[in-house]
């Protein structure tokens, strides 16, 4: 999979998963791809992180099954404030098994666990690159961090 050149690599992705190993792995992979990664160990924390984060959050990679606030709920609440955020769900369950969480209707991309690094980066990229025919393109993103800038 190739990454289009000339694109700003510094998109911000919020990863929420209650399993720390998976969170670490996802962060490593996405950071290796050049994304800015915010992590949260559950839905509530994710909402807090998002609230405190001043810049845009381009994508949310959320586990479906989490304690307190689960993935779809997190996505709903996050997108009320940040309409631009793309949502990618991930879960060890099959999509049929988690149909009860309503993610299928959301039409969001889904990454089954265990995932490979390439699958994850591909799915994230696809989600970020997806342009809805009914929406204006998002404004170009500037990295807020002076170090990265």
């Amino acid at each position: 999979m190739s990454r289009p050149a000339g694109r700003s690599p510094l998109e911000t992705i919020l990863v929420a998963d209650d399993a720390p190993d998976v969170l670490d792995l996802a962060r490593d992979i996405l950071e290796a791809e050049g994304y800015t990664v915010l992590t949260a160990s559950d839905g509530e924390e994710a909402l807090c992180v998002a609230e405190r984060h001043p810049g845009p959050i381009h994508a949310l990679l959320a586990d479906v099954v989490m304690p307190k606030v689960n993935g779809p709920e997190l996505a709903d609440r996050l997108r009320r404030a940040r309409r631009e955020t793309k949502v990618i769900f991930m879960s060890g369950y099959t999509t049929e098994a988690i149909g009860q969480y309503g993610i299928m209707h959301a039409g969001a991309p889904f990454v089954g666990k265990p995932f490979t690094a390439s699958l994850l980066s591909q799915k994230v990229r696809e989600a970020l690159d997806y342009r809805s025919p009914f929406k204006r393109p998002a404004a170009p993103f500037r990295c807020p961090s002076p170090a990265l800038a």
Partner: peptide, 24 residues
């Protein structure tokens, strides 16, 4: 019970590590 899918250290050091190497 609900499952929280994580990665055990064994798999991390074998499967995941291999995957990452391959991916790099």
């Amino acid at each position: 019970a609900t499952f929280s899918h994580g990665i055990c250290p064994d798999c991390r050091s074998t499967v995941v590590a291999r995957d990452l190497e391959q991916w790099r």
